[in-house]
Every structure is written in structure tokens, then in C-alpha cells.
Amino acid sequence: IMEGDLARTIEKHLPQIWHVQLADNPGRNEPGTGEIAYPFLYQWLDQLGYAGWIGCEYKPKGETEAGLGWFRQAR
């Protein structure tokens, strides 16, 4: 975590945000394995009008293919 209070931090700095890079906390594992409410943040980014890229740079907890299940759920 670099800032905390993610929703308000994203909203405050949205004009300067061109790319969102994500990994869950703790452990930098795939989304949904930690404490960050990714469905909420994806919806929040949509509501704010964010049209940039979202990149994923995380360490899979297990096998890579099994760790992609979060993506199917997010779509």
C-alpha cells in the first residue's frame, strides 16, 4: 500500500492517472486474495470516467493458470 484510502486517493489524483497497476495486499498476490475490494474499485473507476489501462503485476499464490480465475470473475 502506498497511500491507503484508495477510492478517495484515486478520485483526488484522477487527472494525473494514466495507468493503474494492481496487486492485492498483503502479499502482492492476484486480486481477491487480500483485503482490497476490487469489484468496488473497478466500479469506482468506471463511475469516475477512468478510461486508461489497468495492468496486473502480481505473484500468483499457486499455479499461474489457476491464479487467473479472478479475471474471469471480474469480467
Rank of each mutant, 00 (worst) to 15 (best):
G62D: 13
I10D: 00
G34Q: 03
K12G: 12
I54F: 13
E3F: 13
T33Y: 09
Q16R: 08
Y42T: 05
A66W: 15
G49K: 03
Q43T: 10
Q16I: 06
G69M: 02
A74M: 12
I17M: 01
L45I: 05
N25T: 08
W18F: 07
N29V: 06
T33N: 01
G49H: 07
R8C: 05
T33C: 00
L45Y: 14
P60Q: 02
F40A: 06
Y58P: 02
F71M: 07
N25S: 10
R28F: 13
L41S: 02
E3T: 10
Y50F: 11
E35M: 09
W44A: 02
P15N: 03
K59H: 09
A7D: 07
Q73I: 13
I36H: 12
T33E: 01
E35I: 09
G32I: 04
L22C: 14
A74P: 07
G49Q: 08
G67I: 04
Y38M: 01
P15E: 04
P31Y: 12
A66D: 11
Q73G: 14
E3I: 04
Y42C: 03
E35D: 14
H13F: 06
Q47S: 13
G34R: 00
I10N: 00
G49P: 04
P15M: 02
G27C: 01
D5M: 02
Q21I: 11
G62S: 04
N29I: 03
M2D: 15
H13N: 15
C56A: 08
L14K: 10
G52Y: 15
Q73K: 15
G62K: 00
D24N: 04
F40H: 12
T9Y: 11
I54Y: 15
F71Q: 11
Y50L: 01
G55Q: 15
L22E: 14
E11C: 05
K59V: 14
F71H: 10
M2N: 11
G69Y: 13
A37D: 12
R8G: 12
H13Q: 09
A74N: 11
F40W: 09
W44Q: 03
W44M: 02
L68V: 09
G49I: 13
Y50S: 01
Q21M: 06
T33R: 00
R72N: 14
W44G: 01
N25Q: 12
K59R: 03
D5G: 02
G62M: 00
F40Y: 13
V20I: 09
D24H: 06
H13R: 02
R8Q: 12
P26R: 03
H19I: 10
Y38D: 06
I10S: 00
I54N: 04
L48E: 07
P39L: 03
P60F: 13
E65M: 02
T64A: 06
I36F: 15
A23N: 12
A66H: 14
D24W: 15
P60H: 05
W70E: 15
M2G: 13
G62L: 00
L41Q: 02
G32D: 08
E57K: 00
E11T: 06
A23I: 10
A23E: 08
L48W: 08
Y50T: 08
